[in-house]
């Protein structure tokens, strides 16, 4: 189905956020944080976060900043 991933259109067969992260190839211990449709999804809740068409997913990592 179509979703938005980090601001760009994407296609995925994943049904949960946890599945999406695994299918995208993120390392198991990856230091990332997630949000769906503007709302924070804690790591512990990724498995139960079901993805539906046109969901807006953000996957963020640490970066330099002022």
């Amino acid at each position: 189905m179509n979703i938005r991933l980090n601001g760009a259109p994407a296609q995925t067969g994943a049904t949960t956020l946890e599945e999406l992260i695994a299918m995208l190839g993120y390392h198991e211990d990856a230091k990332i944080a997630t949000a769906v449709n503007g709302d924070f999804v804690p790591t512990a809740k990724r498995a139960e976060q079901k993805l539906i068409a046109n969901d807006d997913v953000e996957i963020l990592a640490p970066r330099q900043g002022g």
């Binding site: 980090n6 993120y26 390392h27 990856a30 996957i59 963020l60 990592a61 640490p62 330099q64």
Partner: peptide, 12 residues
Amino acid sequence: TVSLRREAARQQ
């Protein structure tokens, strides 16, 4: 200070 920014899996 640090920030959080988008990162694709392949960048890792």
